[in-house]
Amino acid sequence: MINNMNKMQNKVAVVTGAGSGIGKATAIRFAAEGAKVSLIDRNEQTVRETEKEIKSAGGEAHSFTANIAMPEEISQAIKGTAEKWGSVDVLFANAGILGMISPIEYFSSEEWAHTITNNMVGTFETVKQVIPYMKEKGGSIVVTSSVSGNRQIAQAGFSAYSTSKAGIAVLAEMAALELAQYKIRVNTVCPGMIDTNIIDSQKESKYINEVKFPFDIPENGIPLTHGPGQPEEVANVVLFLASDEAAHVTGTKVFVDGAETLIKG
């Protein structure tokens, strides 16, 4: 059963990448706190499974199949959300991919653009689409960046992914200042190693072993847990940033990494 604690009561929340991982965990948590949750994912089967799980627990949700890299698709999903429930109060712009992992020398322009388009441009488009629905009474936007490109750079072949995630974090800061006049808060969550299936979206160049660093990086060096975090742990942080408890928090990056990036830079 949904254990409604009311932190999101009477709010309409949009979650992208809601079919799995951090997006799914956050959507479930939002519903448990009383939100009406619009679930967006490009995988129709998994996003419908999230919808079913929320409804089975007594929550309220509706799923949309859309790819954030396709402006018309994300526009229709946001519009459909507002038509169904009358408003959009919260956005968790979470969807993204790992994409190609490759030395810069061998990175094709197409593969580079694919990652940037899916992650950075897709997040931009999602944020852009919700603004008209939040301008009248304010709202909260949380975007998923990463430790990659912010605190963590020494990741072999991650130049496209890290660049996209750094761009997302800067976009959120720019948006926080620009949208403050409308009482729209914009914050960023930066997960470290989290137990999700995002690795399924990774492709690896045959030249990856050519990327070498002149120092040792611990494979599983996460001081707090000695292993990956859980999606629910990120969802708890997103809930706080999205809720009225964070009413004076905007333009902020929150790292959820168990101190991983204090030893892995």
Rank of each mutant, 00 (worst) to 15 (best):
F124V: 02
E72M: 12
Y161V: 09
D89T: 05
G167R: 10
G34K: 01
E233S: 01
I104W: 13
I153L: 15
K206Q: 10
P218V: 05
K183F: 02
T225S: 14
E245D: 14
V249R: 03
N6C: 13
G192D: 03
G59P: 07
G80S: 13
N3S: 11
E210L: 09
A176C: 01
F30S: 00
N94G: 08
T225L: 11
E204V: 15
P71N: 10
A113S: 13
I22V: 09
V237T: 07
A175P: 03
F92D: 01
G157F: 09
I199H: 14
S146A: 06
V143N: 06
I217C: 09
D200T: 12
S162N: 13
N67C: 13
N220P: 01
H226E: 08
T50E: 05
D257V: 03
K183H: 08
S164K: 02
G34L: 01
A13W: 03
H114Q: 14
V211Y: 14
A93L: 04
M5S: 15
E110T: 11
A77T: 05
K183S: 10
F158P: 00
I2A: 15
V234P: 01
T46A: 06
G17H: 09
S56E: 15
S243K: 06
K264E: 11
V90Q: 00
A69Q: 07
F30H: 01
R48T: 02
T123R: 05
A154Q: 08
E232M: 05
D195N: 09
A259Y: 00
K52R: 14
N150C: 04
G139P: 00
E105V: 14
I54L: 08
H248F: 15
T50L: 08
Y207F: 13
T117F: 01
T250Y: 03
I54C: 04
V14I: 12
E260Y: 06
M174L: 15
V237E: 02
S205L: 10
A235P: 00
I131L: 08
I116E: 03
V237I: 11
L98I: 14
D89R: 06
I28Q: 09
G251V: 01
N3W: 08
A169N: 05
S109N: 11
V15M: 06
S108Y: 10
H114V: 09
N3L: 13
E53N: 10
V249Y: 11
V15S: 06
N150Q: 10
A113N: 13
P228Y: 01
A61F: 03
S56M: 12
R42G: 13
E178N: 10
G122M: 05
E232P: 03
F213G: 14
V254P: 00
A57E: 13
K203S: 14
Q152N: 12
N43Y: 06
G221E: 00
A166Q: 07
L171Y: 10
S205G: 11
I116L: 05
